[in-house]
């Protein structure tokens, strides 16, 4: 455990120093503030709605931005060290390979968590300044937490890509493909299938399954559809319930997307020749 924390500490120090953290926090915060204020207009003066609308808006933003930031943060972790020649030296120290992977993951998670806390936290304070209800704040905190969990899933995927790829360029390519595939193309393909499916062979359960296996959809359902106040403003009332997807299932989906890639990354990294 000690080694994991030492390794995580180095990743945090490096991210804070090379301004990666600053860029991430600013882009998250800037977009969050802009969306929160622009999006607040239809809510009028209802106090609970102000934060609920912010949650709805920020969730839609997080779905794109958080996976991207997470992949950018983690893709370089192992393959970059191998390429720069720092990995050999590190592995001659009394650390296990799994500790290297987990240490990096934990470090990235802290960095992403800090960026989210600063970016979304700052925007939340600005929006809730006019007076957010306890329930509104709870929703907002839950959304930020869910965004971090989504980020963790993509950090794990980034670690897996980094353990798999032989070169940084390959790792970047795979990460872009993963992001496009899971975040953009997956839903488009699903939508296309539903439109083409005239004989209704895709039933509710199949659709539910298709949504739950993709972490970004699980996240969307978790933050937009499963809370009434947010579902009302995001137009997704009852969708999760209709698809038969309860919160535990959605949380489990994201949990699997964190643990499985991470486990695979550890296994691959153990077998990697350095």
């Amino acid at each position: 455990m000690r080694e994991v924390l030492i390794l995580a500490g180095r990743e945090i120090a490096e991210a804070l120093r090379n301004r990666w953290f600053l860029a991430a926090a600013l882009s998250l915060g800037g977009l969050a503030v802009a969306l929160a204020f622009v999006g607040a207009t239809p809510g009028g003066e209802t106090r609970t709605a102000a934060l609920a609308i912010a949650v709805a808006n920020l969730s839609s933003l997080s779905v794109y931005l958080v996976p991207l930031l997470a992949l950018l943060l983690s893709f370089d972790g192992l393959v970059g060290e191998a390429e720069r020649g720092t990995l050999n030296l590190l592995l001659t120290y009394p650390v296990s390979r799994w500790q290297v992977v987990i240490g990096k993951f934990v470090g990235y998670l802290v960095v992403l968590g800090l960026a989210l806390a600063l970016g979304y936290g700052g925007a939340g304070v600005l929006v809730g300044y006019r007076g957010g209800s306890a329930e509104g704040w709870q929703l907002y905190a839950a959304m930020t937490g869910a965004s971090l969990a989504l980020g963790a899933a993509f950090l794990a995927v980034g670690c897996l890509v980094s353990a798999l790829a032989r070169e940084r360029a390959t790792a970047i390519g795979i990460c872009i493909a993963v992001w496009l595939g899971l975040v953009v193309l997956y839903d488009l393909a699903l939508l296309g299938l539903l439109v083409l499916d005239e004989s209704h062979r895709i039933d509710q359960a199949m659709l539910g399954a298709a949504l739950v296996v993709n972490p970004t959809d699980a996240y969307r359902l978790l933050t937009l559809a499963s809370v009434d106040a947010v579902a009302a403003v995001s137009g997704m009332t009852g969708l999760a319930a209709e698809a038969g997807l309860g919160r535990p299932l959605l949380v489990a989906s994201i949990g699997c997307w964190i643990l499985a890639p991470l486990g695979l990354a550890v296994a691959l990294f153990h077998r990697r020749e350095v």
Binding site: R10, A13, E14, R17, N18, G85, T86, L89
Partner: peptide
Amino acid sequence: NVAFQGGI
């Protein structure tokens, strides 16, 4: 050609 993390 020893290398270290550059930012630290």
